[in-house]
């Protein structure tokens, strides 16, 4: 008896697995055909490659030389200067305009900052925080939100009430304010990017929990879940193996769109001084610094902002394309 019902469960799972695989293939095909998603993917790839390069280089040089300011791979490549090195006195060329400007030179494609550092290099090295924090914080929020939402939707009743009320309360505190207060107090005044990441992921939990929960409520009623339950499969196993995989598609779309939102928030946090701490270069912090040179060198304010916009736009385009690709109402 037990054997037969278990094989039934497996059969059900196999069937839903096949359907899932077919849907995934379908979706990938649609994404490939979708111009918006494709462009989004190109932009994301560019940003990821740049960010990864900056991250690996910084990490390696920290490993081998102990500190960022000793040496980086960048100096071996002729187009890059060191992001933090100050030029020797006398050789410094502060506030150079970008290369396309009449006074600009190709040596500094985007000009230099008031300390004479190459701005292009700083921009490249500034990418790592935005991108990595954007992805890591969204990932953390997705995992936590998925667990909360799945448990809440699967058990229902009092557990559902308690979890969803707590999540709603979290959602009722304006995101940026929650993150700032959390970062300040969790770190005891010693601001650190790790606390900012946890703070940002806290604000994304409610969104993912609600999406997953509403999906779980319908998946829960499916025959194969009932069969699994009748066969005596543990709740924890049902949630992990059946409920979550079958409720995940909308979360994926939302997560891609959310990465853009998170990068937007992280830029704001860094601008206010709650994100990356010196000496890590970061776009938001670069804007906070350039803000003071608004009258003398406007280029400093333009490039990091454009970089942030470009990155977020990539994730938004990809998310929009993904949404269209997964939307059953839209038939390509």
């Amino acid at each position: 008896m037990a054997v037969s019902s278990e094989s039934q469960v497996d059969g059900g799972d196999g069937a839903s697995g096949e359907v899932a695989a077919k849907t995934w293939r379908d979706t990938l095909g649609r994404i490939k055909r979708d111009t918006t998603a494709r462009w989004g993917l190109y932009v994301i790839s560019v940003v990821l490659v740049v960010g990864l390069y900056a991250f690996v280089d910084t990490y390696l040089s920290t490993l081998t030389f102990g500190a960022l300011d000793s040496y980086t791979m960048a100096e071996a490549i002729p187009i890059f200067d060191h992001p933090e090195h100050l030029p020797a006195p006398g050789e410094s060329q502060p506030n150079q305009p970008p290369a396309f400007h009449v006074d600009g030179t190709l040596e500094y494609p985007l000009g230099t900052d008031p300390e004479g550092r190459d701005y292009f290099t700083r921009l490249v090295y500034g990418s790592q925080i935005s991108v990595s924090v954007g992805i890591v914080a969204t990932l953390l929020g997705t995992v936590a939100g998925t667990v909360v939402g799945a448990v809440s939707g699967y058990y229902g009743g009092r557990i559902d009430d308690i979890l969803m009320r707590s999540v709603e309360t979290l959602y009722a505190i304006p995101g940026l304010i929650l993150i700032i207060v959390f970062t300040e107090f969790a770190s005891g005044g010693q601001r650190n990017i790790q606390y900012a990441i946890i703070g940002v992921s806290l604000t994304t939990i409610p969104i993912f929990a609600r999406i997953i929960r509403s999906r779980v409520l319908s998946v829960r009623e499916m025959d194969y879940i009932e069969a699994a339950r009748a066969a005596g499969v543990k709740d924890r196993y049902i949630i992990a193996k059946h409920i979550i995989p079958n409720s995940f598609a909308p979360v994926l779309v939302y997560a891609t769109l959310e990465i853009g939102v998170v990068i937007l928030i992280v830029a704001g946090l860094s601008f206010l001084g709650y994100g990356a701490q010196p000496p890590t270069p970061d776009w938001g912090r670069m804007l906070a610094q350039s803000y003071r040179y608004m009258h003398s060198n406007i280029w400093l304010s333009i490039w990091p902002g454009l970089a942030i916009m470009f990155t977020i736009m990539g994730f938004n385009l990809f998310g929009d394309g993904l949404q269209d690709a997964l939307d059953p109402r839209i038939d390509n």
């Binding site: 853009g260 830029a267 938001g284 804007l287 977020i312």
Partner: peptide
Amino acid sequence: ALFGVSTPSFWIGIMLIIIFAV
């Protein structure tokens, strides 16, 4: 709309100040 949802508000602020105020 795409530009609007992708641009940080504080950067829009800085750009507006540079163009229309400075």
